[in-house]
Design a protein around this nucleic acid. Structure first.
Lengths: 200, 200
DNA sequence: GAAAAGAACGAACGATCGTGCTATTTATCC
DNA sequence: GGATAAATAGCACGATCGTTCGTTCTTTTC
């Protein structure tokens, strides 16, 4: 038995740092995340935090990955237990509604999308890859709903995925600015209209 | 003739500064806008730029106002020449499609919305007021389309405004990440479906 | 318990941040 | 054209940024 705890101390504190970094980035965005404030939040020295990542960009990438992982675990994974087709699709949307409300403010992934859409570099690429991956998952679930006969046979999966995504953007946008309850009401009704418009 | 140009020198250079500030904020966002880089971009000294606004926050507010003004002039004003109802609504959307492509990257107003939705202070309030005002204009145009008999009598203006706004968010989001052309195709088709779903 | 390895700290760096203050330049007015 | 006012430049401040480096503390290994 030479493996200490399978996760070691280094990995554990790294996880702790990422927890705090993720929470901070949910407010201020990835671009507003500074190593100094992060270190103060965790209760470590700047250099101690820094040593875990080697650069700020590497830290930001790690936060982005952590966010994507949590998103998938919160939104997609539970929905996979539901039967294929529209029930699973609705479960995805339902889980998505609750996403980002664990911390008071916005979603790291969405804010990163608007922060890095115009620039170049590793962060931009990671955001694009993440978003494209999620869109692919959405299309997959939509395709299954078509196969199950829940949605019309001529359904354009990419278009519907765009529409679903747009409504979630609207929910987060309005939720952040005008209050979550009213935004939720609008989004819920919009989704009902959306499902109906694509149903068989 | 003692009035030099009706707009004095001070106002003129202030306008020049705001032009550059607006362009810079279209990429880096309002939070990424710094007085130093702005001064370098304009070709002035930091303090020279600073003197025009008195504080960074005041500068950001001015940029926000300038953005709102340009948005209204680009998107709303030309549409008011079209006949009330669906034609005007479609014109608004058509103008909105072109908005934000004057500069290569995103829209200041949208990025500000995600930057300040979680915080408090004058910037947050200004963003909310701006967004609420625009939403009100949208609802007004929708109401007219109902009055004209172009949209169903039981149309929920706020809900439709939410749906329109959501699609535009989707357009900007996808446009920034995946390329504007594909996003435009999706958004255009989604809008056609949207109009049809609310039409008489 | 000594030795080796790993993790975190503390101080310092050059740069940039927003913001004052004081000159200096530029425009306006009689 | 000289006096006055406005506009801009220059410089310095404290703070914070990301990053580096050498030291100290903690853990593991023999």
């Amino acid at each position: 038995m030479n493996t200490p705890t399978a996760t070691g101390k280094r990995a554990a504190t790294r996880e702790t740092i990422l927890d705090h970094a993720y929470a901070l980035a949910c407010n201020g965005g990835l671009e507003g995340l500074s190593i100094g404030s992060l270190a103060a939040d965790v209760g470590m020295s700047k250099s101690g935090v820094f040593a875990h990542f080697g650069s700020r960009e590497e830290l930001q990438l790690a936060v982005l990955d952590a966010g994507g992982q949590r998103f998938m675990a919160t939104v997609l994974a539970p929905a996979l237990k539901r039967p294929r087709g529209l029930p699973r699709l609705r479960a995805i949307v339902a889980n998505w509604f609750n996403w980002g409300r664990e911390f008071q403010s916005g979603c790291v992934l969405l804010s990163s999308a608007s922060e890095y859409d115009g620039r170049r570099g590793p962060l931009h690429d990671r955001v694009v890859a993440q978003m494209a991956g999620w869109r692919r998952e959405l299309c997959k679930a939509i395709g299954q709903a078509v196969d199950e006969g829940h949605l019309r046979a001529n359904t354009d999966a990419e278009l519907l995925a765009f529409e679903i995504y747009a409504l979630m953007l609207g929910l987060h946008h309005d939720g952040g600015l005008f209050g979550f309850d009213e935004a939720r009401r609008h989004a819920e009704r919009a989704f009902e209209r959306l499902w109906r418009s694509w149903q068989t």
